[in-house]
Amino acid sequence: MDKLMNDLKSQIVAQLNLQDIRPEDIGNDEPLFNEGLGLDSIDALELIVLMQQQYKIKLASSDEGPKVFRTVRTMAEYITANKPGNT
């Protein structure tokens, strides 16, 4: 799980072009939106693209978004539970 979270941090920085932020600056349980990393709605769409491109995972429902993309840890948990081969 730690490796996956570290990979995700690097991928988030690259995909969202967060040039002022280093992957190690992002906490595992830091909120990605609002008061945390301050991502916006377009970033949320890019995170969905990231999940599809890197992990071949599509969100089952858009209602899941806020829960899945709350933190790096929640993303990693969702990927672990839904990666191809697990279902």
């Binding site: 377009i42 769409l45 693209v49």
Partner: peptide, 10 residues
């Protein structure tokens, strides 16, 4: 051709 980029689309 792959997955359309929302960040570019806007």
């Amino acid at each position: 051709k792959d997955i359309p980029s929302p960040a570019l689309f806007v």
